[in-house]
Amino acid sequence: MNIPHNALIHSYLDGAYFADTHNIELPYQGESALEIYITTMKKTPNWVNTLMDVRNRIVSKLGLKHLGSLADVDKDKALDDYQVGDQIGIFSIVSIEPNELVVEDCDKHLNVRLSFLIVPKGDRMVLHATTVVDVKNTLGKVYMFFVAPVHRRIVPTSLKTLLPA
């Protein structure tokens, strides 16, 4: 995977059951990784939110956690008010740096971690969106069997919403 060596998400890669990264080059005006993450979540395509709704209905019958929607971001909360440990959409914040945000959702079946890392290039940037999943049991493996292929489509599609029109 093409992840910069200084990315905080690297510490979660060893032994991961699933890991992928998607990169996109975008205009850059000094936005933080948190700001770009929130913008991305707010622009989540409707079909992705529909899939999340279907996922939540199915897995809640199997005893897995109902996550809500990716777009469930507090629209009134100021960027400066976010702290490590806060909930932001379906994830909790692990680390907030100007150039990298790491969020996670952990339960008895798996740990999912996501990093948004900005690498500035003048008035452009490369945004690296990296997901790392640690599976804890068979149900987690079954879940990832179905989710991994869809995930590989969701992330690049969501990142493309950031491109200027």
Rank of each mutant, 00 (worst) to 15 (best):
I38P: 00
V84I: 06
N99D: 15
A129E: 00
Y12E: 03
Y17Q: 15
Y143F: 10
G122Q: 07
H5R: 10
V126G: 11
L159G: 00
A7F: 13
Y37C: 01
D72M: 00
P164N: 15
E31D: 14
Q29Y: 11
T44V: 13
M1E: 14
L8S: 05
S69Q: 02
N49A: 04
G89M: 06
L8W: 03
E97I: 04
D72E: 08
W47L: 01
I88P: 04
S60D: 14
E31F: 15
N46Q: 06
H66N: 15
N111T: 09
E100Y: 09
D81E: 14
F145A: 08
S60P: 11
K108N: 15
H128N: 14
D76N: 13
Q83W: 11
D53N: 10
D14N: 05
G85C: 06
D14R: 15
Y82H: 12
A129K: 08
A78K: 08
T131P: 00
L62R: 11
L114R: 05
V48P: 02
T39C: 04
A71M: 12
D72N: 15
V132Y: 03
I90Y: 07
I118E: 03
V155M: 00
N99A: 09
D20I: 12
T138D: 13
P45L: 01
E25A: 01
V59D: 10
D53A: 12
I24S: 06
Y28I: 12
A71G: 03
S95V: 05
T39E: 09
M125F: 14
S32F: 12
L114V: 09
Y37D: 00
L163Y: 02
D81F: 11
E25N: 02
T131A: 03
G89Q: 04
Q83Y: 14
Y12W: 12
I154S: 01
D53I: 04
E35K: 14
S115P: 11
S92F: 13
T161N: 04
G122E: 04
V142N: 15
E97M: 03
L159E: 00
N56H: 12
L62W: 07
H109T: 10
Q87R: 10
D14C: 13
L139R: 11
V155G: 00
E31V: 05
V94E: 13
D81G: 11
N46F: 06
I38E: 00
F91S: 01
P120I: 11
A165N: 09
I24C: 02
R55D: 08
E100D: 08
G85R: 07
I24T: 06
W47Q: 02
M41D: 06
V112W: 02
V119Y: 04
T50R: 12
T39K: 10
L79H: 15
I93Q: 08
K75P: 00
K65I: 08
V135K: 06
Q83K: 12
T40S: 13
D72Y: 07
T138P: 04
C106N: 11
L34C: 12
R113Q: 11
Y12S: 03
K61C: 01
V103E: 02
V155H: 01
P4R: 11
P156H: 10
R152T: 12
S11D: 14
I88A: 08
N99Q: 13
A148D: 09
S158R: 03
P164L: 02
T21N: 14
V132D: 01
I90R: 00
L163Q: 03
T44C: 06
H128P: 07
A148I: 15
L51M: 05
T130K: 00
G85Q: 07
L34M: 09
P120S: 08
